[in-house]
């Protein structure tokens, strides 16, 4: 565990996902790179994975799939039928 709490990382990851919603599919690797750029050695990959797990388990985010897996805000897929 690094110096930054999982909750804080989760909030920051959520902010990135929210900001990019509808514009860019955010992958786990994108969040890892963003957190590494911001915090350097204070966070490692396991910390970011734990933050993503927190977001998914809390229902704030969901996994999507289209040309690779992504982390997205919960929404109804455009292709979904009633």
């Amino acid at each position: 565990m690094g110096d930054i709490s999982t909750e804080q990382l989760a909030e920051e990851c959520l902010a990135i996902v929210t900001e990019n919603a509808g514009k860019k599919k955010i992958k786990a690797g994108d969040l890892q790179k963003a957190m590494a750029a911001k915090y350097g050695d204070q966070v490692d990959r396991k910390d970011v994975k734990a933050a993503i797990k927190e977001l998914i388990d809390s229902g704030k985010c969901v996994y999507g799939y289209f040309g690779g897996s992504s982390i997205e805000l919960p929404h109804v897929e455009g292709s979904a039928n009633d």
């Binding site: 998914i56 388990d57 996994y63 999507g64 997205e72 979904a80 009633d82």
Partner: peptide, 24 residues
């Protein structure tokens, strides 16, 4: 067939392949 994209069960990102009919 249409790609289902985002369907699954809570907490899991795999295990379900979403499909919808294009002629429902």
């Amino acid at each position: 067939w249409k790609h289902g994209g985002l369907v699954g069960v809570m907490g899991y990102g795999g295990g379900v392949i979403g499909r919808y009919s294009a002629l429902p």
